Simulated assay, not measured.
Amino acid sequence: MASNQPAVDVISLTLPNRVEYLGVARLLVSGVANRMGFSYEEIEDIKLAVGEACTNAVEHAYESEDGTYSLHLVCHVYEDRLLIEVSDQGKGFSIEDAQQQRTTPLMEVMEEDELEEGGLGLFLIQALMDEVVFHTGAGVSVSMTKYLRRDGVAGDDRTISKNQI
């Protein structure tokens, strides 16, 4: 019996909640994105977005950064897209409050090549990925999707949504 579900490979990684392990998360997504055929620039965007999501989890999810808590990274590899989920079981946050903290459009202030990891997390994640979904409640989960554009044409069809659970 044929299934209507798209084929997907799932790669999971669980890391201690410590800054020194964030490079491992970036290496994982870099390798997966490279294997899928993303361009160098797209891979750098994916690494930066994942780095920001992981950094936010390490810095804000738990009261301490002692490694007793975990950060979870799951890559869903589809034929046409990469869906990455970063999650923790720490304290949640209000997406609306976090988004309202930035009142000036960032692109008026700095160029993309001047952006660095840390401090601009939500903005960077939303700017660099095609779809972003936040789940808050008992912990935070960020789902980020980047579409593989084999024809070299990239539209600006980014969507942002949230789901309070």
Rank of each mutant, 00 (worst) to 15 (best):
M1Y: 07
S3Q: 08
S3A: 11
N4S: 13
Q5S: 13
Q5H: 10
P6L: 04
V8N: 02
V8M: 09
D9R: 07
T14L: 01
P16I: 01
E20G: 11
E20I: 04
L22V: 05
V24F: 03
V24N: 05
A33K: 09
N34F: 13
N34Q: 14
G37A: 10
G37N: 11
F38K: 02
E42R: 02
E42N: 03
E42A: 04
D45R: 09
I46D: 12
L48G: 01
G51P: 09
G51E: 08
E52L: 01
A53K: 01
A53F: 01
T55K: 04
V58F: 02
E59W: 03
E59K: 09
H60Q: 04
H60W: 04
S64D: 08
S64G: 04
G67W: 07
G67M: 08
L71M: 08
H72W: 01
H72R: 10
D80M: 14
D80G: 15
L82K: 01
L82W: 01
L83P: 00
I84W: 00
S87G: 10
S87K: 14
D88R: 08
G90M: 07
G92W: 01
S94Q: 13
S94C: 15
I95A: 08
E96H: 04
E96I: 08
Q99W: 05
Q100G: 13
T103W: 05
P105D: 14
L106F: 10
L106I: 15
M107P: 05
E111K: 07
E112G: 05
D113V: 00
E114Q: 14
G118K: 13
G119L: 05
L120E: 00
G121P: 00
F123S: 12
L124T: 15
I125N: 12
A127G: 07
V132P: 06
H135S: 11
A138H: 06
G139L: 04
S141C: 11
V142L: 14
M144E: 14
M144G: 15
T145E: 12
L148P: 07
R149C: 13
R150D: 09
D151W: 04
G155C: 03
G155I: 02
D157Q: 07
T159M: 03
S161Y: 03
N163T: 05
